[in-house]
Amino acid sequence: MGELATEKHVQYILSVEKRKDDFQSVVMEHLRMNGAYWGLTALDILGKLNIVDADEVVSWVMSCQHESGGFAGNVGHDPHILYTLSAVQVLALFDKLDVLDVDKVTNYVVGLQNEDGSFSGDIWGEVDSRFSYIAILCLSLLHQLDKINVEKAVNFVVSCKNMDGGFGCTPGGESHSGQIFCCVGALALTGSLHHVDKDLLGWWLCERQVKSGGLNGRPEKLPDVCYSWWVLSSLIMIDRVHWINKEKLIKFILDCQDTENGGISDRPDDAVDVYHTYFGIAGLSLLEYPSLKAIDPAYALPVDVVNRIRLGKRHAI
């Protein structure tokens, strides 16, 4: 089995940020804030966040904030809850949450909760259980969870549960590993995991492991490195991670590396990108791969960052 090409991945992540000379590199600019979160969290897990100029990143993040309090995916774009969470997470990585006007961000998120407890992604009203997780996590990081109706929020997430134990994006929607991560994460952060049938969901999640050792997101799909994160973190939160074959999964992730130029792809020999690079590294961290920082499965941030925030709350009290 090969080893994790840490140095190459660090160089790859740094190079992604600089590349702007072809269509593929500019066409994703509307979600640059997500890209920043993926790349920077990966660097932090690899223990290399210090090579980034924190002030530069923080000032760019803040230039994406709107009057409404929400953050956009890039300067001049419209705000969305997806990018608002990434912005808060990036600031948390650098221990710079104090630059935020907490009330302003909180009001933005609180304003997106609907009567039934669900959350819209922005003012245009699309509802998705992912947005529930994002809202709950965002407010947890700011110690403002009490500002929303948590009970209703939890009820909505629970209403997205299917008979197979999984969760979909809305009530009745098909179970999907990504949505399951969001729903289980939302329930974990609100202390509501008793709503999950752990054996049933654990079963569904473990059936995502295919012959190659990789995990897929839904039945009959091909394995993909990103599900190493979505499935594993869910299994950890419901305490069923010992049901999965960890060695084979580690091998699958390592097989998806570009050992020459750095970066990780969805499947072996495909083209790499920063999204899969992050989820591969985060997956390995959950699998306790040597010399990686531990990552928290619900907060999707390094454990030391989460502890710092929790400690901050204690001091504030």
């Binding site: 059936e207 295919v210 049901w243 999965i244 074959n245």
Partner: peptide, 13 residues
């Protein structure tokens, strides 16, 4: 065989 841990856990339970 690759899911042996799952099968053991489920039959045990």
């Amino acid at each position: 065989p690759e899911r042996y841990l799952l099968w053991d856990s489920l039959t045990d339970s």
